[in-house]
């Protein structure tokens, strides 16, 4: 598999009344063609801003810094906005969390789908219409031709999200960024949308970045995962490895929050991590998780924690030894 997207040392700063919010702090990720990378974290950890930074859609006032922001040989960090607009929707598609508000209420589903092809390929109305029907059928909306003349308010949330996916796929992008695509949907619909994204990824050999706070979603769909905390990636690796031996105390805490059939006794309390994600305003030193971590010791607050390679090929950002951390999981897992 060839690498499609390489991000090195990406930072996003947001001006807030209290100072400068360091929303993303030096994250590095790689995504290969056809691969699904999940970025996992709580609300406010910077995962959505990471995706907007890739798209060049950061809110006004935000600054983006990156040592490398390479997409298929194009340096997204220096590309002018007009050129970036050519890439958006054509080579990188994106779908959002809120299907209820992400579609323009004043235009038909058809016109919102068609304009993507007209914009990027200079397609005729007829060609764009045919492609829109084709894609609605691919995402499982029938009768497609009839739906084209409907308005967003006439569709359910699940259907709207399918329309969003169809819209993002009009030009068969090489990379699809899904920002919490299933969060606003019913559980049964969530599962359908997820299967759909996964099927399309295989059919089109499309890379997917899946942004979510739901580890269940990650376990079902993704190949690799990166756990984000307070703007940093604290652990990454393949889904199989990280789920089997989570190393970072935060990842361990997250996994302890999920009930496991057969292992979690009925009525048993699920794990939880006390406290909330801190917002890093201004300079910060040390591990940002230390105040919520049961293993923290004085050195955690003294210097920045480097990312360490793990034996299974991933990375983790903790001062403790990998073997001690892995051992702890076994112990914690046993007590549950």
């Amino acid at each position: 598999m060839s690498t499609l997207l390489t991000i090195e040392d990406l930072s996003v700063d947001l001006p807030v009344p209290a100072g400068v919010l360091r929303a993303v702090r030096g994250i590095s990720i790689e995504v290969s063609r056809g691969e699904m990378l999940a970025i996992v974290g709580e609300s406010g950890c910077g995962k959505s801003l990471t995706s907007l930074a890739i798209m060049g859609l950061l809110p006004k006032g935000a600054t983006r810094l990156a040592a490398k922001l390479d997409f298929a040989g194009i340096d997204l960090a220096v590309i002018p906005d007009r050129k970036m607009a050519d890439i958006r929707g054509e080579r990188i598609g994106m779908i959002f969390q809120e299907p209820m508000t992400a579609l323009n209420p004043c235009f038909t589903v058809g016109s919102q789908l068609e304009e993507v092809l007209v914009r990027h390929r200079g397609a005729s109305r007829k060609q764009a219409r045919d492609r829109a029907i084709e894609l609605l059928e691919i995402v499982g909306i029938t009768p497609a031709a009839q739906r084209l003349s409907q308005f967003p308010h006439q569709l359910s949330g699940g259907l709207r999200q399918r329309v969003m996916i169809a819209m993002a796929l009009m030009c068969e992008p090489e990379l699809l960024i899904c920002d919490e695509p299933t969060t606003a949907l019913d559980v049964t619909v969530q599962s359908e949308i997820l299967s759909l994204i996964n099927r399309l990824r295989r059919d089109l050999n499309m890379a997917v970045i899946l942004i979510t706070h739901d580890l269940g979603v990650v376990a079902r769909a993704a190949d690799r995962l990166a756990v984000m905390y307070a703007g940093q990636i604290v652990e990454s690796g393949t889904v199989r490895d990280v789920f089997a031996t989570p190393l970072h105390p935060y990842t361990q805490g997250l996994l302890a929050c999920i009930p496991v059939p057969g292992r979690t006794a009925p009525g048993e309390r699920l794990g939880s991590i006390p406290g909330v994600v801190p917002s890093i305003i201004g300079e910060a030193r040390g591990c940002s998780f230390r105040n919520r971590c049961s293993l923290a010791f004085p050195a955690c607050g003294e210097a920045d924690i480097p990312s360490m390679p793990a034996s299974h090929g991933g990375d983790f950002r903790c001062l403790l030894d990998e073997r001690d951390l892995a051992h702890r999981v076994a112990a914690v897992g046993g007590s549950h």
Partner: peptide, 26 residues
């Protein structure tokens, strides 16, 4: 500031189309 304008940008639409078609109509 609405979601559907962000969608329009994510589709790669040009500024004129975003402003005068998608935004102004609403």
């Amino acid at each position: 500031a609405s979601d559907y304008i962000r969608t329009a940008r994510a589709k790669g639409l040009l500024q004129g189309s975003i402003l005068f078609k998608h935004a102004l109509r609403n």
